[in-house]
């Protein structure tokens, strides 16, 4: 039992940090610009595919730097030539733009790289078990992912809360005209923020690509859970997203470990009732529903605390 608890905790933390890695950029963009970027998971996918291609050409480590920069540049272009023009039409227009963009990126990626999964591997330098607990190995690459997540969290928090840059960015959101009168280029501030957010998604892609499956539907399969993380944590709250990632990672991992069902709690149903919808529900184990637990949490938190764990406003 102790073994399962220790290992589940470790797995939960590792998975939670991966979620944070993926959702940090989304949170940054939302908190700074108020734009809910539906194309975020697509930027993540672009990061993975750029990472794969650059790894092939120049190796993993240069790719780790270059691919996010490339994705960031694309993000900035999207902001400069797309979002800036739709901004005056309100949030719905922005949302629709990013929504369409997500489909466009998926099609372009599958045109270039095809629809089959790519052979994107963990770099040889990190391809060894970092440590072993209860005869279960923990690969160095997962620890590397964890470290990068924590570094990103701390760095973002410091930049936003403790530097002049962070101050200007936050002011630009609430008082764009005032910031403009003070001599700052508000448009450029937004462009850079969107670029940084996209680059973070790209970085997550380069890192998560080898750990998960790199293929053209990876954006669609991961998109929904990211929204759960940022809504649960409180829209636009970085510490909220961090905590939400951890909570979701742990809850989901522990749920898988539990085999309990209504039948094991209250005994099996009377066999004479025969198989029916009721017996199906009666016999479903917690493990079976584990992957939908985050979505149930999302619904719960929206009912109980609509602004999320650490959110400050309701929208």
């Amino acid at each position: 039992m102790l073994e399962l608890i220790v290992i589940s905790t470790l797995n939960g933390v590792l998975f939670g940090m991966l979620l944070f890695l993926l959702s940090s950029g989304l949170t940054v963009i939302f908190s700074m610009m108020g734009v809910l970027n539906f194309a975020h998971a697509s930027f993540y996918m672009l990061g993975a595919f750029f990472g794969f291609q650059l790894t092939k050409w120049i190796g993993f480590w240069p790719a780790l730097v270059l691919a996010p920069l490339l994705v960031g540049a694309i993000g900035m272009a999207v902001e400069r030539y797309g979002l800036r023009n739709t901004h005056k039409h309100g949030h719905v227009a922005e949302l629709l733009l990013t929504f369409g963009l997500a489909f466009a990126i998926e099609e372009i990626v599958s045109m270039i790289w095809g629809k089959s999964p790519l052979d994107y591997r963990v770099p040889a330098l990190l391809d060894f078990p970092a440590f072993t607990i209860f005869s279960t190995n923990y690969p160095a690459y997962k620890i590397f992912m964890l470290a990068i997540s924590v570094v990103i969290f701390v760095a973002l928090l410091l930049v936003l809360k403790r530097t002049r840059v962070g101050l200007i960015v936050q002011a630009a959101l609430t008082h764009p005209h005032m910031v403009g009168h003070l001599g700052h280029n508000v448009g450029r501030v937004f462009m850079v923020v969107f670029g940084v957010g996209s680059a973070l998604a790209g970085l997550a892609g380069v890192i998560a690509g080898p750990a998960l499956v790199t293929q053209s539907d990876m954006a669609a399969s991961l998109g929904p859970i990211l929204f759960v993380v940022i809504v649960f944590g409180g829209l636009g709250s970085l510490p909220g997203a961090f905590i939400a990632s951890l909570v979701i990672g742990l809850v989901q991992t522990f749920a898988v470990a539990l085999d309990g069902s209504l039948a094991s709690a209250f005994g099996p149903l009377d066999p004479s009732t025969g198989p029916s919808v009721l017996t199906d529900i009666w016999n479903v184990t917690i493990a079976q529903v584990a992957p939908i637990v985050p979505y149930m949490l999302l619904v719960l938190i929206l009912i109980v605390r609509p602004m999320g764990l650490m959110g400050t406003r309701e929208s």
Binding site: S221, V256, A290
Partner: peptide, 18 residues
């Protein structure tokens, strides 16, 4: 487990191992 929804199988592997 749910069809094509799981991103991290390590908890399942931990159970198999146990």
């Amino acid at each position: 487990h749910p069809l094509l929804k799981v991103t991290d199988f390590s908890p399942y592997i931990a159970k198999i191992k146990a």
